[in-house]
Amino acid sequence: MLVKLAINGEKHQADVEPRLLLVHMIREVLRLTVTHIGCDTTHCGACTILMDGRPVKSCTVFAVQAQGKELMTVEGLEQNGKLHPLQEGFMAEHGLQCGYCTPGMLMTSYAFLKKHPSPTEDDIRWAISGNLCRCTGYVNIVKAVQHAAVKLAGGA
């Protein structure tokens, strides 16, 4: 079945089996490999991408369901060679250890900060509660998101 969609503003199409999961289409068919496959059971959120602006777990969506949708992955965060404030935050605050959960953390936080530009620590912890970091590096992940919130608000 022919699936046409846009990822990070760029149009793509591929002829896929209906059972192909969206994360496999993104990684293996379109070769955008920053999005990770973690638990493959809807728990960990490493595969989180944005579909029409909302974070979803791409291991729990069929590629055919993304027909005509606008997707966003971590590849779309960097603009004109400049890292997104969230990416800078994860670097500056050491928001990643092994890095496996990071793509999902970035996309969930990206959508969250659009809706909640000045969140409390509790708000951030709520937002990322569907994304698991098995290094348990949550303290620095929260700091990284706070760093980005300040930066996006025009602060230092």
């Binding site: 937002a127 509660s129 569907g130």
Partner: peptide, 9 residues
């Protein structure tokens, strides 16, 4: 219900 990301779908 589930978690915030799952609740989007």
């Amino acid at each position: 219900i589930a978690d915030p990301v799952v609740r989007n779908l």
